[in-house]
C-alpha cells in the first residue's frame, strides 16, 4: 500500500498554506477596494442631466446662495429641487436664446417637469433629513463637497454607513457655526476640537447612533 503523503507533500502543503493566506488577503483587499471605488459608490462621476446645470457657475461664479434654488432645505427632509419658475426668474431675461436651456423653456411653456437624474441616491431604507443637519450646524459642503467647483454635479463621498457614523460618533469634528453652513469654502479653525465641543453643547447635538435614527 502506497504512502498517503509523499515527501513532496511537505512543500506542497507549506506553499498551499501561503497561497491560501495570500489569496484570501488579496480577495479581501480587492473586494474592499471595489466596494469603496467610484464603480460601487458612484462617487466622483459627473451625471448626465437634461440641462448641463453648472453649480460652479451659479454658486462659485455668481455667489447665489444654496437656498435660492433649494428653498426648503431648512424645513424639510428633502432639500427641494428648484421649480422651473426658479430657473426662469433669471432666464426669462438672460441667456434667453441659449440652446442649452431649451428644455427649461419647454418645461416653462408646457408645465412639464424637468427630469433630473438623482446624484445622491441613498438606499430606500435610509431616512435622511436635511433640515436637522443644516439647523444643527452641519455644512452642505461636509457631505456634498465643493459644489461651487463642480461644473456638473457629482457625489464626493461614499454615502456608506461607516461614513455617516464617523460624524454621528464625532460631531464635534465636523460641526460649524450655523451662519457658516451654506458657505462653501469654510475652513475649520485650528482649535476645532474646542470650538466643536462648544458648538455641540450650544446646539444640543446628540450623538445618535441607534439603528432607528436612520432606519425605520
Amino acid at each position: 500500500m502506497s504512502q498517503i503523503f509523499r515527501p513532496s507533500s511537505n512543500a506542497v502543503s507549506k506553499i498551499s498554506l501561503l497561497v491560501v493566506v495570500l489569496t484570501v488577503g488579496f480577495l479581501g483587499w480587492a473586494l474592499w477596494g471595489l466596494a469603496y471605488s467610484p464603480f460601487a459608490t458612484r462617487s466622483k462621476i459627473p451625471f448626465d442631466q437634461p440641462v448641463p446645470f453648472s453649480h460652479k457657475h451659479h454658486v462659485g461664479g455668481l455667489g447665489i446662495d444654496c437656498r435660492y434654488c433649494h428653498p426648503v432645505v431648512e424645513r424639510t427632509a428633502f432639500a427641494g429641487m428648484p421649480a422651473t419658475e426658479t430657473c426662469m426668474s433669471c432666464h426669462t431675461m438672460i441667456w434667453t436664446n441659449a440652446p442649452m436651456l431649451e428644455p427649461v423653456r419647454q418645461s416653462w411653456a408646457t408645465g412639464k417637469s424637468l427630469e433630473w437624474n438623482r446624484v445622491h441616491d441613498l438606499p430606500g431604507f435610509v431616512y435622511f433629513n436635511h433640515s436637522i443637519h443644516v439647523n444643527k450646524g452641519i455644512g452642505c459642503q461636509s457631505c456634498h463637497g465643493r459644489v461651487d467647483q463642480m461644473p456638473l454635479m457629482y457625489q464626493v463621498n461614499t454615502l456608506y454607513m461607516d461614513w455617516c457614523l464617523e460624524c454621528h460618533r464625532n460631531p464635534e469634528k465636523y460641526v460649524r457655526p450655523r451662519d457658516k453652513v451654506y458657505q462653501m469654502d469654510y475652513e475649520y479653525p485650528a482649535n476645532q476640537a474646542e470650538v466643536g465641543a462648544r458648538l455641540v453643547a450650544e446646539y444640543k447635538i446628540q450623538k445618535f447612533t441607534d439603528c432607528y435614527t436612520c432606519h425605520r
Binding site: 455668481l62 455667489g63 447665489i64 437656498r67 435660492y68 433669471c90 431675461m93 438672460i94
Partner: peptide, 25 residues
C-alpha cells in the same frame, strides 16, 4: 434678503446685483 433678493437687487438695494452684470435689466 441676501439669499433671494440680493443677486439682482444688490446688497444695499440699488438694483445693481451681480446678475445685472450678466445682462439683466
Amino acid at each position: 434678503f441676501n439669499i433671494y433678493c440680493q443677486p439682482c437687487h444688490g446688497a444695499a438695494g440699488y438694483g445693481n446685483g451681480i446678475i445685472v452684470t450678466r445682462g439683466l435689466k
